[in-house]
């Protein structure tokens, strides 16, 4: 797995009531972590689904390393907002799902599942059923399942939106550590500005109705990031800048 570059060119999506995304163009460099923020209705999730290949474009293209996206595939694994863990599979079998569909051999599968569960902090829970896990742990299973296929691009759609603050911060720190270590390209959707600034190399602000790129803010902090970073004036300054752009977009909308 080496990170891939993502190129979105004038992507337009229209479900029939006017465009949800209007000619959105966005380049994400290989290994870059991009967070997309915007009010609800700004087409954040549609953008992510378009990259994932779950939504068809009405115009424009999405390409991974120059290859045009025509449908969903394991080169762009997704961690969804809703709980997408398969409840009928144990934690280990969940993590192995993508490897099985890819025809990865049993021995290789076992090592990779062991590794990925260790990465997300689920060692020891291999044989548990999802119903026995907390919401935060189930999100770790989701992440493990996506990471196991070693995707060049990882897509995350408000994955931690439903979690309590402490769990959320722990998962964010873990994700930062994993990304720093593995060096993958990530597109992360959120409406939580602090989350966006803590995780991203670059924050994209989407304007709503129709969704379009309104601003982008570079986040200059080195990785891995200390959770205490949130308390620094530099961090709050970047957060303020993102907020400022978001407010500007919402008042003109």
């Amino acid at each position: 797995m080496s990170p891939a570059a993502l190129t979105i060119t004038e992507a337009t999506v229209d479900f029939g009531a006017g465009p949800v995304l209007d000619q959105v163009s966005l380049d994400v460099a290989a290994g870059e972590f991009v967070c997309v923020v915007g009010a609800s209705g700004s087409g954040k999730t549609t953008l992510l689904n378009a990259i994932a290949g779950l939504v068809e474009l009405d115009g424009g293209t999405v390409a991974v390393d120059g290859r045009r996206v025509t449908g969903p595939g394991p080169d762009r694994a997704v961690v969804f907002q809703d709980d997408a863990v398969f409840p009928w599979l144990s934690v280990a079998r969940n993590a192995a799902f993508g490897l099985e569909t890819q025809g990865v051999g049993k021995a290789e599968r076992r090592t990779r599942v062991t590794d990925v569960l260790a990465t997300v902090g689920l060692t020891g829970s291999e044989e548990r059923w999802p119903r026995e896990l907390s919401g935060g742990m189930r999100k770790r299973v989701d992440l493990a399942r996506a990471l196991a296929v070693r995707p060049p691009v990882l897509l995350m759609d408000e994955p931690y939106g439903a979690l309590d603050m402490l769990t959320k911060e722990r998962l964010q720190a873990d994700l930062d550590r994993i990304v720093s270590h593995e060096g993958m390209t990530v597109v992360f959707i959120t409406h939580d500005l602090e989350e966006a600034v803590f995780l991203a190399d670059r924050v994209i602000v989407l304007a709503s109705h129709p969704g379009r790129v309104a601003a982008e803010i570079r986040v200059p902090f080195a990785r891995p990031r200390d959770p205490e970073l949130r308390l620094t004036p530099d961090f709050q300054a970047v957060r303020g800048e993102v907020l400022h752009h978001l407010q500007a977009v919402e008042t003109t909308a």
Partner: peptide, 11 residues
């Protein structure tokens, strides 16, 4: 969501 997850994992 389960079908979509499987799709994105190449099923």
């Amino acid at each position: 969501i389960h079908v979509r997850a499987a799709l994105t994992l190449g099923a």
